[in-house]
């Protein structure tokens, strides 16, 4: 797992081909909640990336020690520890960001991207590959948040990173920074991603969706061609 070429692939797949937000539809709650402005969106993305890289590396290093039956609680404990560290760092050095993210910062614990990558990738691959995978996925997450934050801030507040934009600044479309705008922009971005991916064959849902699901062990319905129990 330590060769050069796969490592670059692990890195880039998270950014475009398997973008966690737009293609795998993971971590939707923070995506909608913190993208009212560019700075909070990027802050959230970077905090999640830090947690993702650390938790992926540690889980990968411990993958032979953790018994299979208690792996999910073990992963959650590791992730919660890193979230607490990130939370303390943000509180100490970026109090404004801490106020902007509020309760969504500790909620990184239950972000399905992080548990999903632990289950799908870190539990099966080496430390270096897992760290790179975490970095790629984190940057993909940050990029998607940045895109949504930009669209919503430019249209909804008439500014970008706090800098006023002429014309739009005096006629902001307020709905874009309100909750409905979040749903709408996300829906439109996914439609565009669908359009761009429409030439390629659709991915097998069992591969991408099920491993992150807590019912993975006792469900497996999609693999048998039945309807998913969670839907």
């Amino acid at each position: 797992m330590a060769e050069k070429k796969p490592l670059i692939k692990e890195f880039t797949k998270g950014i475009i081909k398997e973008n966690p937000v737009l293609c795998l539809v993971l971590g939707t709650c923070p995506t909608l909640a913190v993208t009212t402005g560019v700075s909070s969106a990027v802050g959230m993305g970077l905090a999640a990336t830090a947690v993702l890289v650390c938790s992926n590396s540690v889980i990968s290093a411990l993958r032979k020690v953790i018994p299979n039956k208690v792996r999910i609680p073990a992963y959650i404990t590791i992730i919660a520890a890193f979230v607490t560290i990130v939370q303390m760092i943000v509180k100490a050095y970026a109090p404004a960001l801490n106020d902007a993210l509020g309760v969504y910062l500790p909620l990184i614990v239950v972000n399905c991207i992080i548990l999903g990558r632990a289950e799908m990738f870190a539990s099966k691959n080496g430390v270096a590959a897992s760290a790179i995978d975490g970095l790629g996925m984190g940057i993909g997450f940050t990029a998607a948040l940045f895109l949504m934050g930009s669209i919503r801030e430019i249209l909804g507040a008439g500014s970008w990173l706090g800098l006023p934009i002429p014309i739009l600044n005096s006629n902001p479309i307020l709905i874009f920074i309100l909750p409905p705008g979040g749903f709408f922009v996300f829906g439109m971005l996914m439609a565009i991603a669908n359009k761009l991916n429409s030439e390629k064959p659709a991915k097998n849902k069992e591969e991408i969706g099920c491993a992150a699901c807590p019912m993975h062990d006792n469900c497996g319905k999609l693999a048998k061609g039945e309807e998913c129990a969670a839907e």
Binding site: F183, F184, M188, M190, I192
Partner: peptide, 11 residues
């Protein structure tokens, strides 16, 4: 076609 599934649900 592009809106089918999740996009239209979000809208």
């Amino acid at each position: 076609k592009s809106l089918r599934g999740l996009p239209i649900t979000l809208v």
